[in-house]
Design a protein around this nucleic acid. Structure first.
Lengths: 199, 199
DNA sequence: CCTACCGATCGGTAGG
DNA sequence: CCTACCGATCGGTAGG
């Protein structure tokens, strides 16, 4: 289906040059189509942008969320989610870094449907993480002195900063400080737990 | 001087709509000038973008760095720098949030002079923070179990995430979690210091 | 600093 | 999905 190819191209181009910098003519020449062949499926550039956001969100879910759904709820799954998230950045699923981070920064000052879609996607994802953090605390796997919200905002900060670091400075070890920070935060145990190593 | 007005306008517009989305025609109409009156001072759009980055860096320095230079080196100055940084975001010095964060995300995939200037500015700033963190550790005001680099990357993550949070979700308390995280990190003392309260 | 203009590209439409 | 086209805007230049 041509429509899917157009959306994929828009998401790939958008992650690098921006979701608004992307032009219909560029996508058309990239895919060997005419401009009307590109825009015909969507009616307007904004609808195309919305479709790209939707596709990026589904891709994120498929790459980060789904593979981890089988992990035990709580700290184990939270750790797995964070590692899957970092791995998704390392694998460069989108050529220009995290699509939804770039789109958030680009559209945060432009009221409209695209901005709303990006914000809603982020809210959904942060809520997933928060639920897992709360669960980890309820299971006494994680200290309760910090609220689940605060934990999630810090985890998000580490990943966002890692993505930024990687994209701007192009260092191979750009995500290591993020991993260190995440591990430190998630190692905060509710008690100085003495754990017996399995035989 | 007209040139300064053009640069200011470019920096203000660029923080919101992006440094590349900004157009010479828009700046011209904003200032009541002709397009050639705008571009004549710079020769090319890229030179104008470079001038805007330079101006934003000077502004950042004037708003965040200079006011704090008189504080005692070490933890005190590091705390003051972080608070000045958050205050600069709260005061909305640039209408579209931190100019240099937006520019970093926008240009991280576009090799060229603008990208290099943005990266160099960030390196400078992170080095300032790192030096102060190292000083704080040398003065035994801050635990040494985390490297100065790691501390600075975490501090940077909190501020970046706060800026992102503020811009995307428009909540008045958007920076509070950043403050909490910063305080927690900088409260890590080298010893369980018993402090006598002043009379 | 201006007017006047260049070729190129933009988003989008008409008609098929 | 195509060709052909619309008005608008882009960065930049010529000439003053």
């Amino acid at each position: 289906m041509t429509r899917a190819a157009v959306v994929d191209s828009a998401a790939a181009l958008g992650s690098g040059e921006g979701l608004d910098g992307l032009s219909i003519g560029r996508i058309a020449s990239e895919l060997g189509l005419s401009k009307s062949g590109v825009i015909g499926h969507f009616g307007s550039k904004e609808n195309l942008q919305l479709a790209a956001v939707e596709a990026a969100a589904q891709r994120f879910r498929a790459e980060v969320w789904d593979p981890v759904a089988g992990e035990p709820a709580g700290l184990t799954r939270l750790r797995a989610l964070m590692e899957a998230w970092l791995s998704y950045l390392e694998r460069e699923v989108f050529p220009g870094g995290c699509f939804l981070t770039a789109a958030a920064v680009e559209f945060d000052d432009r009221p409209g449907a695209v901005r709303d879609a990006v914000a809603a996607t982020w809210t959904l994802w942060l809520d997933v993480l928060e639920r897992e953090a709360a669960r980890a605390q309820a299971q006494e796997e994680l200290a309760s002195e910090i609220s689940p919200r605060q934990i999630v905002l810090q985890l998000n900060a580490y990943v966002m900063a890692g993505n930024w670091n990687k994209q701007l400075f192009r260092q191979p070890e750009a995500l290591t400080p993020s991993r260190v920070a995440i591990d430190r935060l998630l190692e905060m145990r509710p008690l100085p737990a003495s754990r017996s190593s399995p035989p």
